[in-house]
Amino acid sequence: MKRYRSKKEQDQTILRTATNYLLPVLLLFSVFVLLRGHYLSGGGFVGGLIASIAFVLHSFAYSTKQTLSLFQFSPMALIPAGLALSILSGLLPVLLGLPFMTGVWFADSVAVIGSVGTALFFDIGVYLVVIGVVLTILFTIAENV
């Protein structure tokens, strides 16, 4: 715990306090938006953008470096991860002898999400890519410009 705070840091106390609560809430919300996308408005794009905004807000309150330290890895790693998930979800039906990207679902529905299928995993892939792209762009710019 730091005892001496600079003027700038003091100015941001309110924002920081707010962010500490907002970040998890927004992230949760983004996941919620992502998962319900198939039935109500929402989806991977919007969800990813909301999650990104949450992290950007955090970086405003603290600093880019501290936001990056929330990750165990570089946000850039989310990009290949998301792309891989999307492509794998498309390849899954190929293993079942169906054409690439055919929708396949589990028999039972899950609460809130509805029926779980390849489309959902595809959307999660999009979600990860969007977070990765936005954070890579913004944090690279913030650090280097």
Partner: peptide, 11 residues
């Protein structure tokens, strides 16, 4: 199996 048509088109 989706009801949000925009999202269904996309994914």
């Amino acid at each position: 199996k989706g009801k949000n048509v925009v999202n269904v088109i996309l994914v």
